[in-house]
C-alpha cells in the first residue's frame, strides 16, 4: 500500500463536515474522518442508527458532503447492498461512468448486535463495499447500556457494578473474527493509537474488491469515564496491553500490524478508566477480575499469533 502523507491530505475535502453534534473528544468522528482520508474516489456513505448517524444528521442539517443514506438500526448492511447493486445496474446501462466507493458504518450496537444479520448477509453475498464499525463497546446514544462488544467487568447501566455483580459478567464477542469467518478478502482491526495505521487499513479495505470489514475501537469519554483529552493515550494503552490487537486478515491470513515493544499489563488499561473503577475501589482490589481480564487478553493474543503468517 502506498505511503500516507498527512501533509497532502490537508488539502483534500473530507466527506464528514464540521458542525456535527458529537460530544467533545468523541472518538467516532475522528475514526470516520481518518477513514475517509484514505479514499481517493467519490464515496457513498450508509449509516446505521447510532451516535454518529444521529449527530451528523440533526434535522434540517447534514454534516455529509457525500451522498448519505440512513434507513434504520438493523439494516446498514442491507441498505449498502442495495446501493451497490443499484450502482452496478446503472453502470451497466451507462448511467454512471466514474468509479464510486461504498462505505457503511455503524457503532458496535448497530454492528455487533442489531445490524448483525444484515451485515452478515451482505458479507456473505460479496457486495463490493467497506463496513466500518466504530466500536465504543456499548450503547452510548441511549445511555451506556451493555452491548455484545462490552468487555467483561465493565460497569454499564444495564450491567451495573454493585454488591451482587461486578459489572458485565460475560466476555465480549470477537466480531472481527466472526467477520473473517465469512471468508471475505479483507478484515482489519485497529484503534486511534496511530492515524497512519487506520488510514492505511481503510484504504486497503476500500481498494480491495469485494466486502471488507474494519473494526475500530474508539473511546467514549462519557461511558469509559475518561478525560476526553486522553483519547489517544487510552487507545495506545489498548494496543500496548494487547487488549485490542492491531491486525488484519488478508484473504484468510492473519497479519499482526502492531506488536507492542513494551507490552503493559491489561490492568494499566483498566485502571485508566472510570468504568472499571469498582475493580480498584476502596483498597479492595478485585485481583480475581483483573487476572480474568488478563487471561482473556492472553488467550486472544495466543489465538491470533498462532495463526500468524510468517513474514
Amino acid at each position: 500500500m502506498g505511503v500516507v502523507n498527512v501533509r497532502e491530505l490537508t488539502g483534500k475535502s473530507n466527506p464528514l463536515a464540521e458542525g456535527h453534534r458529537m460530544c467533545p473528544g468523541c472518538g467516532a468522528p475522528t475514526a470516520l474522518r481518518q477513514a475517509f482520508m484514505g479514499m481517493d474516489s467519490p464515496v457513498v456513505v450508509v449509516g446505521a442508527t447510532g451516535c454518529l448517524e444521529v449527530s451528523t444528521t440533526v434535522y434540517p442539517y447534514s454534516s455529509w458532503r457525500a451522498p448519505f443514506l440512513h434507513v434504520a438500526f438493523e439494516n446498514a448492511g442491507a441498505a449498502v447492498s442495495g446501493v451497490v447493486a443499484a450502482h452496478r445496474a446503472m453502470s451497466r446501462k451507462k448511467l454512471f461512468r466514474e468509479e464510486i466507493k461504498f462505505v457503511a458504518f455503524g457503532g458496535d450496537g448497530g454492528t455487533y448486535d442489531i445490524g448483525f444479520q444484515s451485515l452478515s448477509g451482505a458479507l456473505e453475498r460479496g457486495h463490493d463495499f467497506t463496513y466500518i464499525c466504530y466500536n465504543n463497546q456499548g450503547y452510548m446514544n441511549t445511555g451506556a447500556q451493555r452491548s455484545g462488544a462490552t468487555p467483561r467487568s465493565a460497569n454499564t447501566t444495564t450491567s451495573p457494578a454493585g454488591i451482587l455483580a461486578p459489572g458485565k459478567l460475560q466476555r465480549a464477542k470477537n466480531l472481527t473474527e466472526i467477520a473473517a469467518a465469512h471468508n471475505i478478502p479483507y478484515v482489519a482491526q485497529t484503534t486511534l493509537h496511530d492515524p497512519l495505521d487506520l488510514i492505511r487499513k481503510v484504504r486497503r479495505a476500500v481498494e480491495t474488491p469485494g466486502p471488507a470489514f474494519v473494526n475500530i475501537l474508539v473511546p467514549c469519554a462519557l461511558f469509559w469515564k475518561i478525560n476526553p483529552a486522553d483519547q489517544v493515550k487510552i487507545c495506545r494503552l489498548a494496543a500496548d496491553s494487547k487488549f485490542w490487537p492491531i491486525y488484519e486478515v488478508v484473504n484468510g491470513e492473519r497479519v499482526v500490524s502492531y506488536t507492542p515493544k513494551k507490552p503493559v499489563p491489561v490492568e494499566d488499561f483498566l485502571r485508566a478508566q472510570g468504568r472499571y473503577a469498582h475493580l480498584f475501589a476502596g483498597g479492595g482490589v478485585r485481583r480475581d477480575l483483573i487476572d480474568q481480564a488478563q487471561a482473556d487478553v492472553d488467550a486472544e493474543w495466543e489465538n491470533l499469533t498462532q495463526n500468524r503468517r510468517s513474514s
Binding site: Y59, Y61, S62, R65
Partner: peptide, 8 residues
C-alpha cells in the same frame, strides 16, 4: 436532510 454540509 437534502443539503450537504449544511451543519457548517
Amino acid at each position: 436532510v437534502t443539503l450537504g454540509e449544511s451543519s457548517r
